[in-house]
Write a protein that binds this DNA or RNA. Structure first.
Lengths: 205, 205
DNA sequence: GTCTATAAATTGATAGAC
DNA sequence: GTCTATCAATTTATAGAC
């Protein structure tokens, strides 16, 4: 491939990501992608054979952007549940706030096309067992109260992800549609959510 | 309208709801709706002028099913934040568990078509100010700790709604894709989520 | 009101020149 | 590699008979 090839191929991928993130798989239009990439529709099929293939490429890129990297490292390093919660929440909400379209995009695809997960993603995935053990161990050592790991994990993820996904519901209803106020709210949750959780999993006295 | 009219009109609406809930607005197919309603495609346009109009009708019906009714009553009746949390969570999760497709459907539409909310829904909506006051008053009276109402409200909604919306992610990753286990998990959250929240908003000593 | 047949529009994909 | 022109398939919408 020449330099020029790569440039076009990437311009397409970027335009495609924008379109798919905004409108979803079935709502996206190849014509729009071509326009925004500043090229012709035929070129889309030259580089990526079909709409499905193009979507596949976008999905793969986006997933890598959202997950892993930082998250895996945190799970490996942290030694007790309290520290894990605090650091995970701060990092994860930061990533999501900076890429607010991604969670819904991933959610939509996995919801409408479940076979998606069971394959590649699950294996290359997170060390989830490590998290289970860490929660159970911390409970035994009295660092936190007893709690089912799944309940805690899903609570953490829900409070981190859903506010961003549901922004268009929450901002009008709870913030008078004030964009700045809601941005500030999301920012505040980097610590607020961790505090909320840690209060709840404090050991009984 | 005769009896027969109503029957057909409702059969269409039901079939349309199924299709739209499953595939979303742009993924849904008029042909599928006609098939599942046991009638002809032309009849869809006879009763509802276009796909958009049909979707509109479905959306309105679905919204009413999800919200209001029970929720409003609870907000009116409960006198302090603890009671509100416990009763709201139990009721709301119950509604969602029984209609698990609705939250994503509503979310998708509002996300991709924001002008949606600002109009009819916001006005006929929930007595949100009442909830704000109730949280603030309960804090002043020492029933719960100080907390921004928005933080608490969004935490409650996130933990209630997101597990159902994200089922196809959580069930494979956290429950070995065991459907029964996940159903049981969702059921348990009717009380688990309230407990989790109430622990966190206990007053400081 | 309900059907069949068909139009009209949208859109993903390909052929072929440069 | 990139373009124009066009095809083919899908899908919404309508015309017109019963």
């Amino acid at each position: 491939m020449t330099d020029k090839d790569l440039k076009t191929e990437e311009k397409i991928l970027e335009a495609a990501a924008n379109e798919f993130l905004q409108k979803g798989k079935s709502g996206a239009r190849m014509q729009e992608i071509a326009n925004n990439a500043g090229i012709n529709k035929a070129l889309l099929h030259y580089y990526y054979r079909s709409k499905d293939k193009l979507f596949e490429s976008v999905f793969t890129v986006v997933i890598k952007k959202l997950l892993l990297s930082k998250v895996n490292k945190i799970i490996e390093e942290e030694k007790d549940a309290i520290g894990l919660v605090r650091r995970f929440v701060a990092t994860y909400i930061d990533i999501i706030n900076k890429n607010p379209m991604i969670p819904f995009f991933v959610l939509e695809e996995i919801t409408k096309n479940p076979g998606r997960l069971t394959n590649s993603m699950l294996n290359s995935g997170l060390p989830i067992n490590k998290v289970f053990n860490l929660i159970n161990d911390s409970a035994k050592q009295g660092v936190i109260r007893e709690i089912e790991p799944q309940q805690l994990i899903i609570n953490i993820l829900s409070m981190s992800i859903f506010p961003v996904i549901g922004r268009n519901m929450f901002q009008p209803i709870l913030f008078n549609d004030n964009k700045k106020a809601f941005d500030q709210f999301l920012e505040s949750r980097k610590t607020e959510v961790a505090d909320f959780i840690i209060r709840s999993i404090q050991p009984d006295k």
